[in-house]
C-alpha cells in the first residue's frame, strides 16, 4: 500500500464536499483530498486486526457505575433568561427573528 494511492475517488470526495456544504478553492480541494487519502491509509491498519465476534464497541471509556451516572434531566420547558444576548450573536436579526436568505424549494409534482 502506498499513501499516494487514490483510496478515495475524486467523485466521492466532491460529493462529500457538497454534503459538507463547503465552497472550496481548487488548491484546498487538492490538499484535503490528498490528506484524506493519507489518513485513510493509516486507518486501514485496523483492517488487519483480528477481532472476536463478541467484542463489544466502546463509545465512552469509563463506566461510572449506577451511582456515578447522572440522571437525565426531565424533559421540561425552561424559559431562557438571556434571549437578547443570544439573538445578539445572530448575523442578521429582524423583529427578534433570525433572517436568512431565500430557502431553496422544489416544486412537487
Amino acid at each position: 500500500m502506498n499513501n499516494k494511492d487514490n483510496l478515495i475517488p475524486r467523485e466521492v470526495f466532491d460529493h462529500l464536499v457538497d454534503l459538507a456544504a463547503f465552497s472550496l478553492e481548487e488548491q484546498e480541494k487538492s490538499y484535503l483530498h490528498e490528506q484524506m487519502n493519507n489518513q485513510l491509509n493509516s486507518i486501514r491498519e485496523l483492517e488487519a486486526i483480528p477481532l472476536p465476534d463478541d467484542l463489544p464497541v466502546t463509545t465512552h471509556g469509563v463506566d461510572y457505575g449506577q451511582d456515578g451516572t447522572p440522571p437525565l434531566r426531565k424533559d421540561e420547558w425552561v424559559a431562557c433568561q438571556n434571549t437578547a444576548d443570544i439573538l445578539a450573536q445572530a448575523p442578521c436579526v429582524e423583529d427578534d427573528y433570525i433572517v436568512v436568505p431565500d430557502i431553496p424549494t422544489t416544486e412537487l409534482e
Binding site: 486507518i43 485496523l46 483492517e47 486486526i49 477481532l51 467484542l55 463489544p56 464497541v57 466502546t58 463509545t59
Partner: peptide, 11 residues
C-alpha cells in the same frame, strides 16, 4: 464500528 471495537481492546 471497527474502530469502536479496537477502542475496546485499548481499554
Amino acid at each position: 464500528q471497527r474502530a469502536l471495537k479496537v477502542r475496546s481492546l485499548i481499554r
